[in-house]
Design a protein around this nucleic acid. Structure first.
Lengths: 198, 198
DNA sequence: CCCTTAACTTACCGTATGGTAGGTCGTCAA
DNA sequence: TTGACGACCTACCATACGGTAAGTTAAGGG
């Protein structure tokens, strides 16, 4: 039962941190969700910060697992990766939300926990762009800027899900979601096909 | 001096709320920044929630003022608006950060303070898209999805500023920023010129 | 049977928080 | 001169927080 409890605590913490942010959730609230006291939680994780760190680490591990590098044309690798990312961020919107909170906080909390996972990810992303045929002569900032815009299009929409549903209703949101996916494919195609500006 | 203090408190609150979020800032910390006690702040605003509400209202007022509707071709109106938005969100990144936090929290705090300003904004945005020549036959979700992607590309990058600077250094970030702007112009152009998918 | 260990619990503790109550002080109109 | 009012302040309070200390209980190995 130990593994179970630990894992359940991490699940609950992930959800609550994503919804309310680090300071918006008390460890008592997390433990309470499973019918435990906060001391049970502290027994497993020591401090609130460490719990948060483990939640973050778990997400970034799953994130890395997304990279699916079958040898294909760079164009297809890049496009497929972004499609994966889009699927993933809609299937697990809390994770995206939590990472976005990290992006917002960052310089605040202990050693900017979010930075270490982000840099390698962005580096690999830039590599993927510069491998594209039309982007071979682009500078690294140009490549990263392009990828980052697609990233923004994906993540921003993902994070907006609950709010948009609240505003427009779930029927309209369903249409929005599929329109978003189609439009995203177009955007990716356009970016790949056009090469850097100028 | 009253007006002054009030305004200064709002400025400080805006900055701190944007940096650390609602729960991450105490009213004492805000007042302290101006050499006041928290009771001075409470004297002006009554409660923390009300202060937060006023901060939010101020931002959304500035936001509305962005709309600059000289009669031009819909294509130019739309493109210019997004360029304005981009400029604005980089000139005042805290505002963008705060609005993004609202997007993340939303369903939590009292009556989802963020929703009321967002819907009219999105409605007007969708109108601007459907006025475009190539988008006249598009559905409303299609139009909104397109605009939302550009919105995401803009805001996500804006919010990432400090983190990206921290990761890559301010020199690289400078290049990234100008590359982002050029690439954004391309994206907007592509979206306007292509029409809805399918 | 005993000892250890993991997984909890209850009982605390110091600190920080949002908010209330009641005062002080300067300004300004009658 | 006085009285009211706005802009603060000090003093205080109840609550909630993260964390420590010291048990209790059940399982497993020697």
């Amino acid at each position: 039962m130990a593994r179970d409890t630990r894992e359940q605590l991490l699940d609950t913490a992930e959800t609550l941190f994503a919804e309310r942010g680090f300071y918006g959730v008390s460890i008592a609230a997390i433990a309470d969700e499973l019918g435990l006291t906060k001391q049970a939680l502290l027994h497993h994780f020591g401090t609130k910060e460490k719990l948060y760190g483990e939640v973050l680490k778990r997400i970034s591990d799953r994130f890395d697992a997304l990279e699916d590098n079958r040898d294909q044309a760079p164009e297809e690798v890049f496009a497929a990766y972004l499609r994966n990312l889009n699927t993933w961020s809609h299937a697990q919107p809390q994770q995206t939300a939590l990472l976005m909170r990290e992006l917002l906080d960052n310089r605040q909390r202990a050693g900017s926990a979010g930075t270490w996972y982000l840099k390698p990810f962005l580096d690999r992303l830039a590599d993927k762009v510069l491998a594209l045929e039309k982007w071979q002569d682009a500078t690294r900032p140009q490549g990263l800027a392009m990828a980052y815009q697609l990233l923004g299009a994906i993540n921003y929409f993902s994070v907006s899900g609950p709010t948009l549903t609240g505003i427009f209703g779930s029927s309209f949101y369903g249409d929005l979601e599929s329109a978003h996916e189609n439009q995203l494919a177009l955007l990716i195609e356009a970016a790949i096909g056009s090469g850097p500006p100028g």
